[in-house]
């Protein structure tokens, strides 16, 4: 592998890592606050991508307007899932996990029936490719990377500096103490689901412009998200960011060096190693 090829591999890996990181942040946020492993998250990615596709093609809306509306729709679905699925189960980790898988399959199957099998794609908002010293980066990928990184920073700022963000962190750290301090957990839960849904919507729209839209498109990101979250540490935002970038880079490097088939093997090997050596993940804490 020469220097240009290495740079190409790193650039490609960072972009993918940032997208996976954004989707995984939604997963880890819900786990951190509610201990909910939300399998429906992948379907929110898919449904949002379809929403953006139809709003940009059928309704002719500009991409970012469609994305904003898709984020609203995704939030509505997420909050509905919260009240219809997870709240009745009192956010029990195992029950929510199983119900989430069931709901995920149901949504995916319904999507096949509704949207049909033909592959479609959201039109690129930024066509063209940048050539930086022999390293090629599609402008759309660059946009996706910038947007994902920007949103991750915004989320960190929100959680650190806003009243509502602090309330979320308080619930995450000690639910009972937060309650005694007057934090309304219901409001925190709804906010967490909405934020998670918005992240899924942006991730879905970005994936839709890069890789097309189909009912199965949420499956790989959710699998990657769980690997990332597990490696980074369930509930740790910093861990998710680092693990997301790490998985993006290792996927790209192993895929380029050894072939794409081996990337997943490598991911799972890392995951197994982490689970054996440090079960709570790199930056996680004991639940």
């Amino acid at each position: 592998m020469n220097a240009t090829m290495l740079m190409q591999t790193i650039a490609s890996g960072l972009v993918m890592g940032l997208i996976y990181m954004l989707i995984a942040l939604g997963v880890t946020l819900l786990f951190g606050i509610m201990r909910v492993v939300n399998f429906v998250h992948g379907e929110l990615v898919m449904l949002s991508a379809f929403a953006v596709y139809f709003m940009t093609t059928a309704a002719g809306l500009p991409f970012f307007v469609a994305l904003a509306l898709a984020a609203v729709a995704s939030s509505v679905v997420a909050v509905f899932c919260q009240y219809a699925l997870f709240s009745p189960l009192q956010y029990d980790i195992l029950n929510c996990f199983i119900v989430g898988i069931g709901a995920s399959f149901a949504i995916r199957s319904a999507s096949w029936a509704i949207f049909g099998p033909e592959p479609i794609a959201i039109a690129s908002t930024l066509p063209g490719v940048l050539n930086i010293g022999g390293v090629f980066i599609a402008k759309q990928r660059l946009l996706a990377a910038v947007l994902c990184a920007g949103l991750a920073i915004l989320l960190a700022v929100f959680l650190r500096y806003t009243r509502h963000g602090k309330a979320m962190r308080a619930v995450e750290q000690d639910r009972e103490a937060a309650l005694l301090m007057g934090v309304n957990p219901t409001s925190v839960y709804v906010t967490a689901f909405v934020i998670s849904a918005v992240l899924a919507a942006v991730g879905g729209a970005m994936l839709g412009t890069l890789f097309g839209v189909d009912p199965e498109m949420g499956a790989e990101p959710i699998l990657k998200s769980f690997i990332i979250v597990q490696i980074g540490g369930m509930g740790s935002l910093l861990g998710t960011v680092i693990a997301g970038l790490f998985i993006g880079l290792t996927d790209s490097i192993t895929g380029t060096l050894l072939g794409g088939e081996l990337a997943f093997i490598f991911d799972f090997s890392i995951l197994m190693l982490i689970l054996i050596v440090r079960p709570r993940g790199l930056f996680g804490y004991d639940a």
């Binding site: 090829m5 591999t9 990101p221 192993t254 895929g255 380029t256 072939g259």
Partner: peptide, 19 residues
């Protein structure tokens, strides 16, 4: 070159082919 059917990111395999 080979890739896992249903993959999303084809950059790794494409990078090898382009090279």
């Amino acid at each position: 070159e080979f890739f896992k059917r249903g993959s999303t990111d084809f950059y790794p395999v494409a990078t090898r082919l382009v090279a």
